[in-house]
Computed example of a mutant assay.
Amino acid sequence: MNNPILVRLATPEDAESLAKLNYEFNGVLMDMHTIQETLVSSNELVALGIRGDTPVGFACGQYFKSVCYRELYGEITEMYVSENARRSGCATSLLSFLEAELRARGVKEIKLITGANNEAAIATYTNNDYTKQEHAVLSKTL
Rank of each mutant, 00 (worst) to 15 (best):
residue 102 L to E: 10
residue 46 V to D: 00
residue 119 E to A: 13
residue 35 I to H: 03
residue 90 C to W: 10
residue 37 E to V: 10
residue 108 K to W: 01
residue 21 L to V: 05
residue 106 G to P: 03
residue 31 D to M: 05
residue 92 T to D: 07
residue 69 Y to F: 07
residue 124 T to M: 02
residue 76 I to R: 06
residue 20 K to V: 14
residue 111 K to F: 15
residue 73 Y to W: 08
residue 77 T to I: 12
residue 100 A to R: 03
residue 58 F to N: 07
residue 93 S to V: 07
residue 70 R to T: 01
residue 43 N to E: 04
residue 18 L to R: 01
residue 126 T to P: 06
residue 73 Y to Q: 10
residue 12 P to R: 01
residue 123 A to N: 15
residue 89 G to R: 03
residue 79 M to Y: 14
residue 121 A to L: 09
residue 11 T to W: 08
residue 114 T to P: 00
residue 58 F to W: 11
residue 46 V to F: 12
residue 45 L to V: 06
residue 126 T to R: 15
residue 59 A to F: 13
residue 47 A to Y: 04
residue 60 C to S: 13
residue 10 A to W: 05
residue 23 Y to G: 06
residue 32 M to H: 12
residue 64 F to I: 00
residue 18 L to G: 00
residue 81 V to W: 07
residue 142 L to Q: 11
residue 140 K to A: 11
residue 96 S to F: 11
residue 78 E to C: 07
residue 76 I to V: 10
residue 110 I to K: 00
residue 49 G to K: 01
residue 99 E to F: 12
residue 87 R to Y: 11
residue 95 L to S: 00
residue 100 A to Q: 05
residue 62 Q to E: 08
residue 80 Y to D: 12
residue 48 L to W: 03
residue 16 E to L: 10
residue 130 Y to S: 04
residue 34 T to W: 15
residue 135 H to Q: 02
residue 116 A to H: 04
residue 89 G to T: 02
residue 121 A to K: 13
residue 47 A to I: 11
residue 20 K to Y: 11
residue 133 Q to I: 15
residue 1 M to E: 09
residue 44 E to I: 15
residue 70 R to E: 05
residue 37 E to K: 12
residue 84 N to D: 10
residue 51 R to V: 05
residue 6 L to K: 01
residue 21 L to Q: 02
residue 35 I to W: 13
residue 123 A to V: 12
residue 23 Y to V: 12
residue 91 A to G: 13
residue 41 S to H: 10
residue 106 G to R: 00
residue 115 G to M: 13
residue 88 S to W: 11
residue 102 L to C: 07
residue 124 T to G: 06
residue 117 N to Y: 08
residue 75 E to Y: 13
residue 70 R to D: 06
residue 82 S to E: 04
residue 68 C to S: 09
residue 32 M to V: 09
residue 28 V to I: 15
residue 29 L to H: 03
residue 105 R to K: 04
residue 37 E to Q: 08
residue 86 R to S: 07
residue 110 I to Y: 02
residue 5 I to C: 14
residue 96 S to I: 07
residue 77 T to A: 08
residue 44 E to R: 11
residue 38 T to N: 10
residue 18 L to P: 00
residue 41 S to V: 05
residue 10 A to L: 11
residue 27 G to L: 09
residue 104 A to C: 00
residue 97 F to G: 07
residue 3 N to M: 06
residue 111 K to G: 14
residue 25 F to E: 13
residue 128 N to I: 09
residue 94 L to M: 03
residue 122 I to F: 15
residue 127 N to Q: 10
residue 137 V to H: 02
residue 86 R to N: 06
residue 29 L to A: 11
residue 81 V to I: 09
residue 54 T to L: 07
residue 52 G to Q: 04
residue 53 D to W: 02
residue 112 L to C: 09
residue 48 L to V: 08
residue 97 F to Q: 02
residue 27 G to D: 01
residue 104 A to I: 08
residue 124 T to W: 12
residue 141 T to L: 14
residue 90 C to P: 03
residue 36 Q to F: 09
residue 90 C to D: 02
residue 58 F to S: 05
residue 43 N to Y: 14
residue 15 A to I: 09
residue 78 E to Q: 15
residue 99 E to T: 04
residue 94 L to V: 03
residue 138 L to K: 01
residue 12 P to D: 01
residue 56 V to T: 04
residue 66 S to I: 01
residue 114 T to C: 07
residue 39 L to W: 06
residue 69 Y to N: 08
residue 100 A to E: 06
residue 21 L to E: 03
residue 2 N to W: 13
residue 71 E to C: 03
residue 133 Q to S: 13
residue 24 E to I: 05
residue 11 T to R: 11
